[in-house]
Design a protein around this nucleic acid. Sequence first.
DNA 1: TGATAATTGTTTCCTTGTAAACATTTTATG
DNA 2: CATAAAATGTTTACAAGGAAACAATTATCA
Lengths: 159, 159
Amino acid sequence: MIPEVLDPASRSRIDLGGLEQSLGFLLRVSQLKVFHHFFEKLGHIGLKPGEYSVLWVIARNPGIRQGLLAQNLAIKNAHMTKLIRSFEVYGFVERRIPDEDRRAVELSLTEQGEAFVARHKPDFFGYIQTLDSPLDESETRELVRLLAKFSGISRESVQ
Amino acid sequence: MIPEVLDPASRSRIDLGGLEQSLGFLLRVSQLKVFHHFFEKLGHIGLKPGEYSVLWVIARNPGIRQGLLAQNLAIKNAHMTKLIRSFEVYGFVERRIPDEDRRAVELSLTEQGEAFVARHKPDFFGYIQTLDSPLDESETRELVRLLAKFSGISRESVQ
DNA sequence: TGATAATTGTTTCCTTGTAAACATTTTATG
DNA sequence: CATAAAATGTTTACAAGGAAACAATTATCA
């Protein structure tokens, strides 16, 4: 049986009573669909999308403060501490306590981390292309635009 | 400070390197935004959106099989078992083992459960209206339509 | 019919992520 | 300056959710 987040056959017989148009529900189900596809395609790599994105952003912003990283990826500090620790143990990330502010932590990738990020860039940024989506290309673009605007990632609305 | 999922001020200074257009990331951040607003508005009620939706669907489909419910809401059986148990203890849901198939569980609401669902319907279906969204009404409708199509909830694509 | 397979839900164990309290350092204030 | 307040991460203790093994029942089929 093809693994589906929601099986249309069984779904058709019950009454969701409007849940089908609830933004929260739709976001959750859509995210499950994307995750499901991700793990199917890239599960073997051993890093989840959020974890890769942490490495990715450190790569693009060497020396970034741990808190700023957490804020921008909407990851809680407590969780980020654990992620960074495990990346450090694994040899992908280095932590540096700057002298100007010894509360802070500045992050950068090791060579190994850089190599990993570079090698898997096509995987993590391309897997979505292989998802068999009911949306055509312009619809997908519009979905991305609307989500970016809704979430506040794009500044489209602020003029 | 106004609690925001992503603070635009801090965000503007770092380079996300294309993550801003990643469907998975945008779905996650958007969902966080909706959840955040939900808890702000309705946290006091004590039920989360997913939990209410379970009650809601049972109300609309009395006697529904637990597994079918789980399937339709994209909740794993193991988790559904726990949810239903706690609703049962709380006096909102009744379980019935049908004679025709004694492996199955048929669910229905108690009077108390019905009353709860009815009383809070405006809350759970209306809270999204009070979210201060950058999207106008037609954009929101389009977002909902695209998500429904993408997730497979709507059968628009299957004609 | 009797053995095997599939279905349905539950239990157990584990991972992910969060909240709250904490430790340390820096900034503000009297 | 000395104390109070804020900022930055970390720790701890917990809750949500999932995977895998399991138990019970029903369906299949030789």
